[in-house]
């Protein structure tokens, strides 16, 4: 009990930080893939597909991430499905991120001017061709700043995975604190590490936004 913060503690925190990055990456990739499907489903010509995806988005956005994490971990266990903390956290965050990225990307796709769709239609391109060759390349440029911005939210939200026992940065801080009882110092360190991860992303997102704001010239890959 007690003792001082030493290199072992710091290495443990460092390992937690790596898991935070790992879990964020899983959430971004998983959520990105599912979110892309959600975005397309939200603008599907089929009413049932639009409706189903809208319900999904509303359900997830109306539920705290903490509840989703508990459902993923304890809920699945209750119906006999044992999942590791990593799997539960990864799956829960994927579902969560997909709902938000899906909505962000739907907005980006819809913000490509309507006449672009019409011009592509007038050239006899199929719906898939219009989407892949005309709309998405423009939507991706619009989507980049808000997506990078949302990555900051993902990183911060992974801290909630500590409640299901996944040892990421937050949980490793709690564990170290349990042996040292120096909450202020330890959580200050944790805060600084989160900030060090998020701030560069925020800056990058702002820079991207400014560049987009300067007009269409930046749409062209020079």
């Amino acid at each position: 009990m007690g003792g001082h913060l030493n290199i072992n503690h710091l290495m443990f925190l460092g390992q937690g930080a790596l898991w935070t990055i790992g879990l964020s990456t899983i959430a971004l990739i998983g959520g990105g893939i599912v979110g892309f499907v959600i975005a397309l489903a939200r603008i599907s010509p089929l009413r049932s597909v639009r409706l189903a995806s809208a319900v999904y988005v509303q359900l997830v956005q109306g539920t705290p991430l903490l509840v989703i994490l508990f459902l993923g971990y304890f809920g699945l266990a209750a119906i006999g499905l044992q999942v590791s903390p990593l799997a539960a956290a990864g799956a829960s965050l994927t579902l969560y991120v997909a709902a938000y990225l899906g909505e962000i990307w739907r907005g980006c796709i819809e913000s490509v001017p309507k006449p672009q769709w019409e011009a592509a239609e007038g050239l006899a391109l199929s719906r898939t061709q219009r989407m892949m060759k005309v709309i998405l390349p423009q939507a991706i440029r619009i989507a980049t700043p808000p997506t990078v911005g949302f990555m900051v939210q993902i990183i911060k939200n992974t801290s909630l995975a500590s409640v299901v026992g996944f040892v990421e940065l937050m949980r490793s801080g709690q564990i170290v604190n349990n042996s040292l009882f120096e909450p202020f110092a330890i959580y200050a360190i944790i805060a600084v590490v989160y900030f060090a991860m998020c701030y560069p992303l925020s800056l990058f997102s702002q820079r991207l936004e400014r560049r987009m704001g300067r007009g269409r010239s930046n749409l062209a890959p020079a």
Partner: peptide
């Protein structure tokens, strides 16, 4: 049927050549 609009509606992310070749190649 070819249609030309008041607001041109060229695809901004493609060069003029790519704008023109897109439909003949894809369609």
């Amino acid at each position: 049927v070819g249609i030309v609009f008041q607001s041109y509606n060229l695809f901004p992310h493609l060069t003029i050549e790519q704008n023109i070749t897109l439909a003949p190649c894809a369609v």
